[in-house]
Design a protein around this nucleic acid. Structure first.
Lengths: 190, 190
DNA sequence: GTCTATATTTCGATAGAC
DNA sequence: GTCTATCGAAATATAGAC
């Protein structure tokens, strides 16, 4: 994906990185392939050598999230979910969520585009981490009290790290992480 | 806006209600005026009698949120913010957030479209509640600990009521409200 | 207030040269 | 792998009749 310096080494990855940035800033539908190409110093047609379609670019970005959440997904699939398990998962997931902040922001801000993408892919077995979250929260065999706490704690992490996370500056990221962890712990306690 | 039965009485409001629903479901850019018109049983051109442009429709929907948050905004503008004040505000705002769930969802899912709208309106004094939230959370004179707690608590409310709130069914909304309140209280305590 | 018809623009995507 | 050139579709918006 990227080399040690964090720079993408293939054109395919460079396209994805630029697209990610623009899709977050201006939205998927609000970003034209012309803009993506211009920022890379190439023409629109060049992109079609690396990707079959605009949707194909979005799908490649979606796979980055899929990769990220696949072991978390596994931990949430066997056995039934408890508050303690949920708390442990959130705690261990927090670092990954920060380092992949952009890819999560992309999904949060382009839900409509991803849903349209899913409708076309009626083949792919998209056992998504997002779907799994919704599935657990909708599971009526769990106490409502626990489900609400899980939804709130997930929202708290997203609020502290992603949605408003850029208000805290970059220098003290690890402090923010600790504060979010403690906030979630307080929320889930009892 | 609407009569006692909750039905919009003017064509203008009917347009806004349909647009709101489609903009949430398919996104602002993903929704064409043809779709809006078709669902209303009129043609695209008819919409232009009531609104000057598609952006004008989005702006009218934005004003609904502006109206909603204007007294909350006032309470957040005088004096400096404390954790206690923040908690009280969230508590009193929670009912409004639930009853205006859709208009908040619209803003959450179409940030890019609203930002583009704001760029054109360099005249309007949009002292927005969203802006105010970000402003407070970025205020370095407040303890980082408090700011993170504020961001997390706001995220918790959005998680419990909006983002994943439809997983709990509609019957027990007041129970969910109470559970979210108590979760936020636990989070802000200490 | 709503209609038909159309102007205008922009976008995704393709063809073929290099 | 990237270019120029272009196609076809769909979108916003307008003009003018009713």
């Amino acid at each position: 994906m990227s080399n040690a310096a964090g720079q993408p080494d293939t054109m395919r990855e460079r396209i994805l990185d630029v697209a990610l940035e623009l899709f977050i800033q201006n939205g998927y539908d609000g970003t034209s392939l012309r803009e993506v190409a211009e920022r890379l110093g190439v023409t629109k047609a060049a992109l079609y050598y690396h990707f079959a379609s605009k949707d194909d670019i979005l799908m490649a970005l979606h796979l980055r999230l899929h990769e990220l959440g696949k072991d978390a997904l596994r931990r949430l699939t066997d056995g039934h979910v408890t508050l303690a398990k949920w708390g442990a998962l959130l705690d261990s997931l927090l670092d990954e969520m920060r380092s992949h902040r952009e890819i999560i922001l992309l999904h949060e801000r382009n839900q409509a585009a991803f849903e349209k993408l899913h409708r076309k892919d009626h083949d792919a077995e998209h056992e998504d981490i997002q779907d799994r979250f919704r599935q657990i929260l909708a599971d009526a065999s769990l106490p409502l009290r626990d489900r609400v706490k899980m939804a709130c704690s997930l929202g708290a992490v997203m609020g502290g790290l992603l949605m408003f996370g850029d208000a805290f500056g970059q220098a003290q990221e690890s402090q923010v992480d600790d504060l979010v962890r403690s906030a979630v712990k307080d929320l889930l306690r009892r």
